[in-house]
Each structure stands twice: as structure tokens, then as C-alpha cells.
Amino acid sequence: MNGMTRRRNLAQVSGENAVIQVAWMYYQDGRNQQDIAEALGISRATVVNYLQEAREKGLIRITLAAPAFTTHRLALELSDRFGLRGAYVIPDEGTTTEEAFQRIVRGAANWLLDLIAPGDRLGVAWGRTVYELAEIVEARPVDDLTVLQLVGSMATPYGFTAEACSTRLAQRLGARCLNLHAPAILSRAALAAELREEPILRTQLDQLETVNKLLFSVGTATADSHIVLSGLATREDLDWNVAQGAVGVICGRFVDKDGQQLPGPMEERMIGIPLPRLVGLEMGILVTPGLDKVEATRAAIRGGYVTHLVTGSTVAEALLATD
């Protein structure tokens, strides 16, 4: 290729959007970086920069097919041991806690698109795991999909509101969003009962009864758990429930080792879907990103909330070793 041709190719590519051209040649045509550089009359370093720009702008999406994570040993053993319809296990050996968290959330975001279908009414819990998933899930509209906030609003230590989880996910999936316009917990049971009977909120709560699929992560029954840091439960509430056998939290409710909700004074003051309504749904998608949630995950499975589990290999090994 002579110098004039090289300059003409570079000018043409620059005018047509060099980033897209390079990304197409690399990912669709299967050409290597040096070949692209020579064909377009640019340096290999420029090709590398264009590919990086394409990734940063979200112009390309690189994923591994779900069977890579759902059909290997750990996934199959989890499904068999716990009676799940599917498990998606991401390798996380040698990663930091945050790296493992990000891997598992990204895996859940990828698999979610295979698990939901037109007409679904997807109930969404709250917390960092679900929020981060909603932020990175591929923007792909799903016909006649409704996303519902399952528990009322509350403060959060992570810089987003509780309803942001359902709102953001609905935006990414082109879905209708139904949020609860009320606090998750009130100071008095009588006040909560009155609020539930307000016509607007009564209609919203009735809509929750139509949920057919659930997306959630379990919380821990520890002082640094989201339920305490958000102010939903006080330290006294936590201590009382732990004394009654609490091992985890599902949608703001404490549960014991068998996934049974612990009766207590908090329930009468809460605004949200009753926990028994989430047992035995068409699908319950649980995302467990860390070893601190192994006991709570086991409880959620025993309680009948889970049909599909997304987790890392270290958590999977722990679940298989301890149950």
C-alpha cells in the first residue's frame, strides 16, 4: 500500500467514524490489530486506542454464553443438591472481595436477560447488589414487562434510594415501573395500618400480589448489614431477632435457618409485600456475591424463595461443603 492510498484510507475512516470501523473489523471480521492498522493506514497503537474507546462508549458487548456457567460441575452440583432449576457460577478464585462482587453482579445481569420474558411481573428487592445489576444490565426492551418495588423506601448507605433499584432496572429493560410511595417502616403499627388503607397505596400493594418472578439478594443478620445501616432495623431490633434465631434478611424481613420469617413487632410497622407471598413463585433469582451470605443463602433456598442462583465458585464450594 503506497503512502497516498494509506492517507486516503485514514481520511475516509476518520470521516465515517473510525472507532466503529475498527471495532467492526476486529470483532466481526476477526482481523488482528496489525492487519487493521495496515489496511487503514494507521498505527497499531491507534487501533488499540479505538478499541478501548469502543468498549468505554458501550459500542461493543462481550459476554460468554450462559452454558459456560450453568453446565459445569459446581453449577450442576448446586442444582442437584438444592433442587434448583438452574445455577450460574462465576470463577472468582484469586480475586479481591470487590472484584468477585463485580464479576458476580455482571454475570447476574447477563443471565437475567435469559430468564425474563414478555408479560412477566418482576418483583425487585433493594440493596447494592440489585442496584449495581440494574446499572450494568444491557439495555434491551422486553415487551409488556413490569418491574415492581417490593419494599417501601428507606435511606441507604450506598448513595441511592430504595426505589432506584426498580426504576433503573425498568428503564434499562423498557419496562413499566411500579414503585411504592411510602416508607419501608413507620414508627407505629397503627400508623402503618392506616397508610396501607390509603387508596393510592392500597392499589400499589394489590399490584404486588401479581408478581410472578423475584430478583433479590439476601442480607446478613449482623451489625454491618444493610438492614441496620439503612435504619430499617435498629441495633436492638437486630439483637432481638438474632436471639430468636435470625440468620439472614429477605426483603427487609428477618428469617431463620429454614427461611421462615420471624414474627416480631417490626412486621406490623412495615410497608411492602408479605414475605410468604414470595415463596413458590414461578421464578426466584437469588444473587449471592460473598461468603458472608452463605448461611442466609442456604436459608433462602430452604424457605422456597429460590429457583435460580447466581454466585461465585468460592460461595458455591462453601454451600456444597456445609449443607
Rank of each mutant, 00 (worst) to 15 (best):
M1F: 12
L195M: 15
V228A: 09
I301K: 03
V151A: 11
D206L: 15
M1E: 05
V249R: 01
L59W: 14
V105G: 03
V130D: 10
R73H: 12
T322S: 13
Q149T: 06
E197G: 06
V310S: 12
Q261H: 06
D323Y: 03
I227N: 08
Q149F: 07
R61G: 06
A321Q: 13
N110K: 00
E197W: 05
L133I: 05
D237M: 04
E56N: 12
A296S: 04
E53H: 11
A300F: 05
V249Y: 01
R7I: 13
K257M: 11
T5A: 11
R188V: 07
W24G: 06
L10G: 13
E135V: 11
C177L: 10
A100L: 00
S225E: 02
G83Q: 02
M266F: 11
V147E: 07
L113M: 12
V151L: 15
E16H: 13
A45G: 10
A221G: 11
V211P: 02
A246T: 08
E53R: 15
F254R: 02
G119P: 00
I200E: 14
T307L: 01
R140T: 11
R81K: 07
Y27M: 07
A170H: 05
A299F: 08
G303I: 06
A296H: 06
V228N: 07
M270C: 12
V218N: 07
N32R: 12
A243R: 10
Y88Q: 01
L319G: 02
T220Y: 06
W126P: 02
N110R: 13
A246Q: 07
S225P: 10
E56T: 10
D143I: 07
G290Y: 05
Q204E: 15
M4K: 12
A39V: 05
H181C: 07
V151D: 07
R8N: 10
H72M: 04
I20F: 00
M266V: 01
L291P: 06
L148F: 12
Y88V: 02
Q28C: 08
A189F: 02
G245P: 04
P289C: 13
D258V: 02
T297K: 12
Q28F: 03
A45K: 09
Q21L: 11
G231M: 11
P199N: 13
S313Y: 04
L320P: 04
W240D: 05
M266W: 01
A300R: 09
L133T: 06
T71P: 02
D256Q: 14
A175C: 09
E198D: 11
L229V: 12
E317W: 00
D323K: 06
R6V: 04
R298W: 04
S166H: 05
R202K: 14
A100R: 10
G284W: 06
A316F: 06
L74A: 04
V48D: 08
A300N: 11
L195A: 10
I271L: 14
G119R: 06
S225Y: 03
Y50L: 10
